[in-house]
């Protein structure tokens, strides 16, 4: 990584207000500063309602903000862009389309002709292990398989930056572990940078180079933890004492905040 390259994401002093129906303004994020380097895997973890989704949407260019700046690959964000792709918590697959049409949806929006986009989609379906499910409909697939389709759809537009909002939280615990290693596998073969939101501490530590801990009311960054576990990460990693130590540290930080929240409520 050369010094002259701008980081994948650079967020500085970001503040966001939501207008409530009664006309009052609610501060959702305050003064958030955060950097995701090129090729880096960064997770955000924090209590419910601390503004994680809000921040991801702003980086994705589908939501505006009030103060501060967001730059992606050195360029200020003004809207969605071809270098970013999002994976959604609820998969967001179009239920009336087959798997292959879902995977090539992003390419269709960009005006690629059908044979070409199908060719790309087939390659990605193979890479997520769903080559045999081209003509299935989403409802015929398990949750884990549906999210593989969601991942393939995001990768199909060859982004440099992957934005993932709790992508595995609707998936059962065992499948989830497999998806984590598969995701790392795919990521390690590319130069993708990933911004990954999660509620699971072990997931954040297992996947990331950096774990960002956020607090609520209004949303702000409290800690940034460097995960110094070696790569490639495998099932062995989960039993590494350092892994257990880091997960415990993240939990300590979060527990304090959540208990405070509960007392306030």
């Amino acid at each position: 990584m050369t010094e002259t390259q701008a980081p994948a994401i650079s967020i500085s002093n970001l503040t966001k207000f939501y207008g409530s129906p009664k006309g009052r303004r609610m501060k959702a994020l305050e003064n958030v500063t955060l950097t995701v380097g090129r090729g880096e895997f960064v997770s955000i973890i924090g209590p419910s309602g601390c503004g994680k989704t809000t921040m991801l949407k702003m980086v994705g260019g589908i939501l505006g903000w009030d103060e501060g700046s967001i730059e992606v690959l050195g360029k200020p964000v003004t809207g969605p862009g071809p270098e970013r792709a999002t994976v959604f918590q609820s998969f967001a697959l179009l239920p009336w389309m087959t798997v292959i049409d879902n995977v090539s949806f992003g390419l269709k929006v960009r005006g690629m002709a059908k044979p070409e986009r199908y060719a790309v989609a087939r390659k990605l379906l193979a890479s997520v292990g769903l080559a045999d499910f081209e003509t299935s409909y989403p409802r015929q697939l398990s949750g884990g398989m549906q999210q593989r389709v969601g991942l393939a759809r995001a990768l199909a537009v060859s982004p440099q930056l992957l934005l993932m909002d709790e992508p595995f939280s609707a998936i059962d615990a065992q499948t989830r572990l497999i998806l984590q290693t598969d995701l790392l596998d795919i990521w390690s073969k590319t130069d993708l940078s990933v911004l990954f939101i999660t509620h699971a501490m072990d997931e954040a530590v297992f996947l990331s180079d950096k774990v960002v801990i956020m607090g609520a009311r209004p949303g702000h960054v409290t800690d940034i933890i460097d995960v110094d576990l070696p790569r490639p990460r495998t099932e062995e990693t989960r039993r590494d004492p350092r892994f257990v130590e880091l997960t415990g540290f993240v939990w300590d930080r979060l527990r304090g905040m959540i208990q405070q929240d509960e007392r306030a409520a």
């Binding site: 969605p80 071809p82 792709a85 967001a92 949806f105 929006v109």
Partner: peptide, 11 residues
């Protein structure tokens, strides 16, 4: 979420 998804792809 579906319209958000499409927006994020620049539709």
């Amino acid at each position: 979420v579906l319209t958000e998804m499409a927006t994020s792809f620049g539709a």
